[in-house]
């Protein structure tokens, strides 16, 4: 009997402690969640957004919207000049040489052209495939019309691939191809 009580005590104590800890953590996690999300955006995507939407006068991280298209959630950053939106940017993904890569695409709302492209995360080989993150490659997308063929020249498109990093360049192009068709829908929802 004594042993039995001890077992119950063990279980009760352990589960009480676990429950209290679990609820405490849930509360703290709920409290910090929003800020953590913002910090992540600021540190992971922030630098890229600022580059692509350079010239904006608003707080790009704060002025973001979540937009759902085909059940997929997109975080859309909106660049404003003198209070009026002039550009937006969102992230899509492609497959490079080392695996998945996240590519942010910026659009100029006034001319309906690409405002710029930036790679926010990738697993490409340092010094080889990773060169697609450099400005010399990403700037070839800038100011292109939405109807341009976003493929590397070897595949019949308009983009110069980085020498020695064909697969990685193709990955970036794939992400852009995936992102461009969403633009009109997203633009409509943002300007609504």
């Amino acid at each position: 009997m004594k042993e039995y009580i001890e077992y119950i005590k063990m279980i009760v104590v352990l589960s009480t402690i676990s429950a209290v800890c679990g609820f405490g953590l849930a509360a703290i996690s709920a409290f910090t969640k929003e800020r953590i999300e913002e910090q992540k955006l600021l540190n992971v995507e922030g630098p890229t957004v600022k580059k692509i939407l350079a010239g904006s006068t608003n707080d790009l991280i704060k002025d973001r919207k979540e937009i759902v298209i085909n059940k997929q959630k997109y975080i859309v950053f909106i660049g404003k000049k003198n209070g009026a939106p002039w550009a937006l940017a969102y992230t899509t993904d492609g497959t490079g040489f080392g695996g998945e890569m996240s590519v942010m695409i910026g659009f100029d709302l006034i001319n309906d052209t690409l405002a710029g492209v930036g790679i926010t995360s990738h697993k490409e080989t340092p010094g080889v495939g990773s060169r697609v993150t450099e400005d010399s490659f990403t700037k070839t997308f800038k100011d292109k019309g939405l109807n341009a063929v976003f493929k590397i020249k070897a595949d019949g498109g308009v983009i110069d691939a980085v020498t020695g990093a064909t697969v990685s360049s193709r990955g970036v192009c794939g992400a852009v191809q995936k992102g461009v068709p969403l633009y009109q829908d997203i633009k409509k929802q943002v300007l609504k």
């Binding site: 104590v13 352990l14 402690i17 405490g24 953590l25 703290i28 910090t32 953590i36 910090q39 992540k40």
Partner: peptide, 23 residues
């Protein structure tokens, strides 16, 4: 087991706080 749960809880708190305020 109890010690580990208690310690781990505070570690997660540190994790969340540093992530939110000193990224």
């Amino acid at each position: 087991a109890c010690y580990i749960v208690i310690i781990a809880t505070f570690v997660v708190i540190v994790e969340l706080i540093t992530q939110a305020y000193v990224y």
